[in-house]
Every structure is written in structure tokens, then in C-alpha cells.
């Protein structure tokens, strides 16, 4: 039964594939980059696998909370374990921690095989707008941005992966609300930089 269902789901993949078969950029790739439709479809299939085999949804943000918990447990164990969030989700070597660690590894592999791996500093788009001497500002907005994202993700219960892909595909109301407001917030605040 499980196998039948899985094959049936694979057959359903024909729908988007057929829809985009006419579009040339659906199959073509430029440089090291693959078609966004191909990548999206494969991420969709990957989500079937994580649900089916691991009983997990794809997510990224809780990895950072786990790392913060490990550090907190090392520096101030009593205080950290008394925080409401860590009482509920004690920092441990869990599925999502391993998943995101492996994400970095997968990106190394993809970049190397695509000829895109290279040690880079500030993004070109940033230096073109803010100049080459803008490192302090870049560091400040990166740190602040990261902190705001993590706080927001924990408050909302997920990020662009956990809510934006895994939650919306389950037709979860919280995920559709959060994802819409992520892009509203992003589109508004990006105007402060560009």
C-alpha cells in the first residue's frame, strides 16, 4: 500500500512537468545554475521523503536555536535549561541539527561540481551600492539581520523552509500567514539598503 501511494505521488509529478515542458528555461541551465522549476520539484519530492522515511518536515531555523542552546548549556547550564523554550525543546543532537549541518556539506559539493566554489568577501551587489569601505556596516546589518530572523522565526514557529515550503504545502494557516508577512517585511525593509 505504501509503495502504491508513493508511485501514485510520483505519477502526479507529471502535472507540473507537463505544464512547464513548453517553457525553454524549464529545462535549460545557465552556467552552474539549474532551472528553478527542476530544483523546486526536486525539493518537493525531497519533502515527501523526509515526511515518509524520517517523519520530519524540512526546516532550518531551529538548528540555530539548538546551537545557541549548546553554547548556553556550556556557559550557563542552569539558566539555559530554565528558559521556557529550552524546557520544551532541550538542545540535543536532533534530526534538524544533523539535517542543516549536512546542508552546508551538500552546498560545498554542489558549488564544487558547478565550478562556483570560491572564497568570497562582501557580495558584489553590496559593494556596488555601499562601496568597498563599508565592511563595518555590512557586518552590522548581517548580525542584526540574523538576530531579527532567528527571533522572528522562533516567534512565528518557522522560517522560509519550515513555514515557507513545508508548512504551506500542508496547507497550514500559520504557514501561509507567516510566509506572506515574511515577503511583505522583506520587500519593505530591503528599501532601506537598496
Amino acid at each position: 500500500m505504501k509503495v502504491t501511494a508513493f508511485i501514485l505521488s510520483c505519477a502526479m509529478l507529471a502535472v507540473p512537468v507537463a505544464a512547464f515542458a513548453q517553457s525553454p528555461d524549464a529545462v535549460m541551465t545557465t552556467g552552474g545554475t539549474w532551472s528553478p522549476y527542476l530544483v523546486g520539484a526536486l525539493i518537493g519530492i525531497l519533502s515527501w521523503c523526509t515526511f515518509y522515511f524520517s517523519e520530519q518536515k524540512i526546516g532550518a531555523s531551529s538548528f540555530y536555536a539548538t546551537v545557541a542552546g549548546f553554547i548556553g548549556k556550556f556557559i550557563a547550564p542552569k539558566h539555559t535549561m530554565k528558559l521556557a523554550y529550552y524546557e520544551e525543546k532541550p538542545p540535543e543532537l536532533n534530526w534538524e541539527f544533523v539535517f542543516v549541518s549536512a546542508t552546508i556539506l551538500g552546498a560545498v559539493l554542489a558549488a564544487t561540481t558547478g565550478g562556483e566554489f570560491g572564497l568570497r568577501g562582501m557580495p558584489l551587489m553590496w559593494t556596488q551600492r555601499h562601496g568597498d569601505e563599508s565592511f563595518v556596516l555590512y557586518a552590522a546589518v548581517s548580525l542584526l539581520g540574523g538576530a531579527l530572523m532567528a527571533f522572528g522565526a522562533r516567534l512565528a514557529g518557522g522560517c522560509t523552509s519550515g513555514h515557507g515550503i513545508s508548512g504551506t504545502l500542508q496547507l497550514s494557516v500559520s504557514s501561509w500567514i507567516t510566509t506572506v508577512f515574511i515577503f511583505v517585511g522583506g520587500a519593505l525593509f530591503v528599501r532601506l539598503l537598496y
Binding site: G146, M149, A150, F151, G185, A187, L192
Partner: peptide, 9 residues
């Protein structure tokens, strides 16, 4: 909040 951080970083 997430969106603002996404834009900043």
C-alpha cells in the same frame, strides 16, 4: 521581523 532580517542580511 523575519522579513526585515532577511532583507538586512
Amino acid at each position: 521581523m523575519f522579513g526585515s532580517g532577511f532583507a538586512f542580511s
